[in-house]
Design a protein around this nucleic acid. Structure first.
Lengths: 125, 125
DNA sequence: AGCCGATATGTTTTATTTTGCATATCCATT
DNA sequence: AATGGATATGCAAAATAAAACATATCGGCT
């Protein structure tokens, strides 16, 4: 998750993401969006095309995240009429939902702090 | 600024930074630490060596940030007995201080939300 | 059995960052 | 005036990351 706040010509950004022990990105803005798009499209390929990112990378990222998380986020099948498809697992859906909630809560909380920060900056000048 | 929180084997990271209009990083974790080290060492060279980053990059980053911010963060002098030195300007010090304060405030606020997030995750499982 | 379209991967290119190297400049001190 | 050590900066090299390309595989359908 990431957002921007403006203070005159200086902007304030923040970002939140889930990682493994080594700090490697598992689920942040990008994958969050990707998973949501997969849910809608029912296909990884369609999702990446919609978003405009490379299939190769998206596929690798998901694989990596699943490996580190220890459970599947996406249920992938190959072959068949449409060539295959990708659907979110129950755990994947739950994860997205929790993250979604966290997203809102976090943004609200941070905005408050930022307002205070702006006041501080003004005073100090 | 960045921090970590643990949920079993999943960690939560967040990061905050200041940027210009184009989103280019002006002051984040790296420069924040660097400036603080410059204050202690009284030298850019010494600071980079202490932290373990390249002088070339650090110097360039500071120059870039100063240009975009529109004021000096560091007062640099060349020549003399020690070859030169680098000290924080008043504005630089104030900036670090405000950022510092924001840092603490932000961390406190975020921690609260994270606790809630963990609870949500637990419930949902 | 053969086709089609998506998943699954290895390999190669391209782009972006970071580091490293070389060199010039500055100036209190010797 | 010669020296030394830090700042200042261009440029080449190396390391990382992202994108592109090329295939192989799978399985319901015709």
């Amino acid at each position: 998750m990431s957002k921007t706040n403006t203070y005159s010509n200086i902007h304030l950004h923040y970002k939140v993401w889930l990682s493994d022990k080594k700090g490697e990105n598992l689920l942040g803005d990008g994958k969050w969006q990707l998973l949501k798009e997969i849910e809608q499209q029912g296909s990884l390929k369609a999702a990446t095309e919609k978003i405009g990112i490379s299939y190769r990378k998206a596929w690798g990222d998901i694989k990596f995240a699943e490996q580190r998380l220890g459970f599947q986020l996406v249920n992938k099948t190959r072959g068949g009429r449409d060539g295959g498809n990708s659907l979110l697992t129950e755990e994947g859906k739950r994860f997205i939902l929790a993250y979604d909630e966290f997203h809102r809560e976090f943004a609200r909380s941070v905005d408050k702090v930022i307002i205070k920060f702006k006041r501080t900056l003004k005073k100090k000048r």
